[in-house]
Amino acid sequence: MREYEKTGILSLKDLQIPTKKQLEKGVAILECVQEIPCNPCVDSCPVHAISMKDINAPPLNDFDRCIGCTKCVGVCPGLAIFVVKIKDDKAWVTLPYEFVPEPKKGTVVKALDRTGNVRGNALVTKVIKQGKTHVVTIELESGLAMDIRNIRVEV
C-alpha cells in the first residue's frame, strides 16, 4: 500500500521531478500518478510533450520538450497539473483554482501546501480563465515552489 492511498497526499518521491535547468524555463509537474481513464492533457499540449501509453496509463511529461505554457493546467479534470518555474531565489507556480472570490492580479494571497497548511504569502502575477477554472500564477520564494499547491484568497 502506498502512503498516498491512505492519506491522499502525494510526496515528491511519487512524482517525476525536473532538473534545475528544466525548472529555470518553467515546466508542468503532473501530479497524476494512478491509472485512471483520462487523457485531455495529452490533447491540450501544443508541443506534444505530454504522452500516455494508453488512456489508463499515468501521463508523462518530457521536460525538455515542455515549454511551460500552462495550457494543460486549466484542462486537467483532476486539477492535478502545476507549472513551476524557479529562477534564483524566486519561483512562480501556476495552479488551477475553482473558488470564489476569484484571485486578482497584484494581490497577496495565502500559499498552502499539499496538506492545506499555510506556508507563507504569495503575490498573484497572472489570472486567466479557462472555462470556469481560474489558472492562477503566483510568485513566491523559491524554497516553497515544490510544496505550494493551493492558495487562499482572504476577504
Binding site: Y4, E5, T7, G8, I9, L10, E31, C32, V33, Q34, I36, G78, L79, A80, L112, D113, R114, T115, G116, R149, N150
Partner: peptide, 9 residues
C-alpha cells in the same frame, strides 16, 4: 487520488 489531493490541499 487527484480528487483526494484537491481536498487535502
Amino acid at each position: 487520488n487527484v480528487h483526494a489531493a484537491k481536498l487535502r490541499r
